[in-house]
Design a protein around this nucleic acid. Structure first.
Length: 394
DNA sequence: ATCCAGTCCC
DNA sequence: GGGACTGGAT
């Protein structure tokens, strides 16, 4: 979910792949509230959470410098200079622009195939090591997943007001993207959306006002999201850094984004993709990580073992997946992962590509069934997932 | 009761 | 490579 895609978190980031849905969405009717250093009020925010600042935990001033191990050092390509993007005002892309279009799918795939062929065909000059052969049938698999995604509605597709974000000036929009990304991880999209909206209503979606607000206020506004306390702290620190080092804008490079507290590879790539429209890498969240491994699309370097971390997955996936797919692969697999290829008990029976998936019907239904199961070891195969499912239900 | 999410910290 | 952070889902 939170997938990456901060889809939905920020209205403009909804990952709905079908454009006609847009018309059903609501729009922000009023302009973005000016946030002139006014102290935000906690009006309608969270349910009770009373005792907002009851705990005397005063915010301690963190002057510490965040030194981060440098990640993504492996990204060697396309660190190219980019023209100053501040000029463009209104045509910053929504995440939807990246998603597959129902009608364009074949075109997309054809393009992919084309570039894929080009990639493997010629002694290309990409700074990648030896070319990696794409997995068999990956285009069919992608097509199959896309078909599943377009034929059914995932909750993730049905909400958002994607135009709101684009009403903001570029700088504010980018900051909003960053905030949404920070809040979206792991939380339900609706929750994130609400939190972002509450911040927005209180004029707290820009670095200035966040720096001038109380951390307790931030906490109360984003309360429903997971890890809200840590995120509130990170948000304040990020706002300070953005204000001091980037004039209130967000960092322009992957490395600088990664240096922000609470921003890891997943969010950094997302922000690069969405806020800057600069694809430096694939945004790999746990859905992408899990599904790519189930499909056999990624492996530890030099082996056939599953990747152990999302970062390994990202590097492995990038080694063969045509770059046109780098952005849309995330919303696609996230939606698929929410509805069919779930972490627990994947619905292989209703998956259109179970004939192409090496992991189909192979995952234990309830992995942690370490309970003392009577294990009638007679005729029953206990490694069969559906059997365990049946047992678990009894 | 356990799993899950992304990042940080040990 | 595992726990902390949080609250929701199973």
């Amino acid at each position: 979910m939170s997938q990456i895609l901060l889809r939905n978190a920020l209205p403009s980031l909804s990952s709905a792949p079908i454009s006609f849905r847009i018309s059903t969405r609501m729009h922000f009717s009023k302009p973005f509230p000016s946030s002139k250093a006014k102290i935000p009020t906690i009006s309608d925010s969270k349910p009770d959470a009373g005792s907002e600042s009851s705990d005397g935990v005063s915010e301690m001033k963190v002057t510490r410098v965040y030194t981060r191990k440098k990640r993504a050092a492996d990204i060697t390509w396309s660190t190219q200079e980019t023209k100053n993007p501040d000029e463009k005002l209104c045509d910053l892309p929504n995440i939807e622009d990246f998603a597959y279009e129902k009608t364009n799918l074949s075109t997309t795939l054809n393009q992919s195939k084309l570039s894929s062929d080009l990639l493997s065909g010629s002694g290309n000059d990409l700074p990648m090591k030896s070319k990696v052969d794409p997995p068999d049938n990956w285009e069919k698999v992608l097509q199959g997943i896309q078909n599943m995604r377009t034929s059914e509605d995932a909750p993730v597709d049905s909400m958002g007001c994607e135009k709101a974000g684009s009403l903001l000036p570029p700088k504010e929009r980018r900051f909003a993207v960053l905030v949404s990304s920070l809040l979206s991880s792991q939380t339900k999209d609706a929750v994130t959306h609400g939190a972002v909206q509450r911040l927005s209503q209180n004029g707290l979606l820009d670095a200035d006002s966040i720096v001038n607000s109380e951390e307790e206020t931030i906490k109360s506004l984003i309360y429903p999201v997971g890890f809200y306390s840590r995120k509130a702290g990170n948000l304040k620190k990020i706002a300070e850094i953005c204000l001091e080092k980037y004039g209130g804008d967000i960092p322009r490079s992957l490395t600088e984004l990664l240096a922000l507290p609470g921003i890891g590879p997943k969010m950094a790539h997302l922000v690069m993709n969405v806020a800057w429209n600069d694809v430096q890498g694939i945004c790999v969240d746990t859905h992408v990580h899990r599904i790519c491994n189930r499909l056999g699309w990624v492996s530890r370097p030099g082996t056939r073992q599953k990747t152990l971390t999302p970062e390994e997955t990202r590097v492995s996936l990038q080694s063969w997946l045509p770059k046109e797919e780098w952005v849309p692969i995330n919303p696609l697999l996230v939606g698929f992962g929410q509805t069919v290829c779930t972490p627990l008990r994947p619905r292989c029976g209703q998956c259109a590509i179970n004939n192409l998936c090496p992991s189909a019907f192979k995952e234990a239904a309830s992995p942690k069934t370490k309970t003392k199961k009577p294990a009638p070891k007679s005729t029953l195969n206990t490694s069969n997932g559906s059997l365990q499912l049946c047992l678990a239900r009894v």
